[in-house]
Design a protein around this nucleic acid. Structure first.
Length: 210
DNA sequence: GCGACAG
DNA sequence: ATCTTGTCGC
């Protein structure tokens, strides 16, 4: 797949994104997705499912793969998607929400990793990035405070303070959720700056790299 | 033309 | 992404 084809694929799938939640959406099981890289082209995709109420781990999957697509800003998903999809397919049961390590609608073509994974699985998804793709004014320093993440004149996500006085994370809608709900779910998962889903998937992946 | 650019 | 434990500071 060439970068040109990747862009065309994003534009083809972009209209399928549903930026709102089903009326009765209940999130009981939340999955965290993350990919770790070795020195060569090997990588490990990890998915950890947590009970949203207790934050207890209820399922884990690790998949080894290869980075066959280069890291290109805006096309980041094409690097991690193959292995992540394989891992998701090995879960005992589909989760109610996917928490991705990267952007959702906060993307140059409004189709970041979280949107892509959401559309391919048709599961609700949110993107939680550690650095912004857009501009924002720093939110208040208390946990839960937030401000708009703006790109190209539109609000594409939110800078969310998940912990008192710590750098915010950047939340954007992936698929089948709205921004308010996305932020509420992310905040609920945060004990430290990053969601527990992301932290556990990250450590699981790293452990398997050795 | 120059800079910016998720992980 | 990755290099990386203890340590300084509020």
């Amino acid at each position: 797949m060439t970068p040109e084809e990747a862009v065309a694929e994003q534009e083809r799938l972009r209209p399928l994104v549903v930026p709102r939640a089903d009326p009765g959406l209940v999130v009981r099981r939340v999955a965290g997705l993350d990919v770790s890289y070795a020195d060569d082209d090997r990588l490990v995709a990890a998915v950890v499912v947590l009970d949203a109420a207790t934050l207890e781990t209820v399922d884990e999957v690790v998949v080894a793969g290869r980075a066959d697509f280069p890291y290109v800003p805006g096309l980041f998903a094409f690097r991690e998607l193959p292995s992540l999809m394989t891992a998701l397919g090995e879960l005992a049961a589909p989760p109610d929400l996917l928490v991705c390590d990267g952007q959702g609608l906060a993307h140059p073509r409004r189709f970041g990793l979280a949107c892509h994974v959401g559309v391919l699985t048709d599961l609700p998804s949110v993107g939680v990035a550690k650095t912004p793709m857009g501009r924002f004014t720093p939110p208040g320093s208390a946990r839960g405070e937030h401000s708009d993440l703006v790109d190209g004149g539109e609000v594409v996500g939110r800078a969310l303070r998940t912990r008192e006085g710590v750098k915010p994370v950047f939340v954007s809608v992936g698929h089948r959720v709205d921004l308010d709900r996305a932020c509420a779910e992310v905040l609920r998962l945060c004990v430290t700056r990053l969601p527990e889903t992301t932290r556990r998937a990250d450590s699981l992946g790293r452990a398997h790299l050795r």
